[in-house]
């Protein structure tokens, strides 16, 4: 659960995630464009990366939660965080969101072709099944991640898919770890200690 102390600022949070508050709060559902402008909304529609956020403004403390999952706070200082819209609980009102096309790597893990991009200065609260583990990627030490355990990543990272699909996989004799994301460059990757079910059993 996430508690936010507010003194007149604005926070954006997942629709319906408020569980309690004290003080004076106003909740406003964001319109069609979700604060991303008409072009942003169009991109989001095309990408199928739906996200419904509400704007919360007021004085006091507001509590957010979703499905009793763990919350991790990520501080952004002008850099970019890429996160699935399902895993985004709340963010600072000053931060900007958008859609990032990521290509085929999202297929098969039920994540679609696009992901949500958060950038600017402020704090983002992300959700994970079990406490998220932050893993550093530095030049020379690439990191491989199971697509089902991936939560978010930030920094200057190149992402590619490593496949080890061969005739054994087709016969059902595969290693069960045939598809992985590999991150190279400089940044942080967040993983969760649980694997969500994908469309494909790979």
């Amino acid at each position: 659960m996430l508690a936010v102390d507010m003194a007149g600022e604005t926070v954006r949070a997942m629709n319906g995630s408020m569980v309690a508050y004290d003080g004076e709060m106003t909740f406003k559902r964001q319109g069609m464009t979700g604060g991303e402008g008409l072009r942003g909304a169009l991109r989001r529609r095309v990408a199928g990366e739906s996200m419904t956020l509400m704007e919360v403004t007021g004085q006091g403390t507001v509590y957010f939660a979703s499905e009793a999952t763990e919350v991790t706070l990520v501080e952004l200082a002008g850099d970019t965080l890429l996160v699935e819209s399902d895993s985004l609980l709340a963010l600072d009102g000053r931060l900007q969101t958008g859609v990032q096309f990521i290509g085929l790597r999202g297929m098969g893990t039920g994540q679609g072709l696009a992901t949500t991009k958060v950038e600017g200065q402020g704090t983002v609260a992300i959700l994970s099944d079990g406490p998220a583990i932050a893993l550093e990627v530095a030049p020379g030490t690439p990191l491989c991640v199971d697509p089902h355990a991936y939560v978010a990543h930030r920094g200057q990272l190149q992402q590619d898919v490593v496949t080890d699909v061969n005739w054994r996989t087709v016969l059902g004799q595969g290693s069960g770890e045939s598809v992985q994301f590999r991150y190279q460059g400089h940044g942080l990757v967040y993983v969760q200690p649980a694997e969500r079910g994908g469309i494909l059993e790979i």
Partner: peptide, 16 residues
């Protein structure tokens, strides 16, 4: 056991 790896660093191969 299959499917319990969540991430790794280094050179690791997984074989049936």
């Amino acid at each position: 056991q299959k499917g319990k790896m969540i991430a790794y660093y280094g050179q690791i191969r997984f074989q049936a």
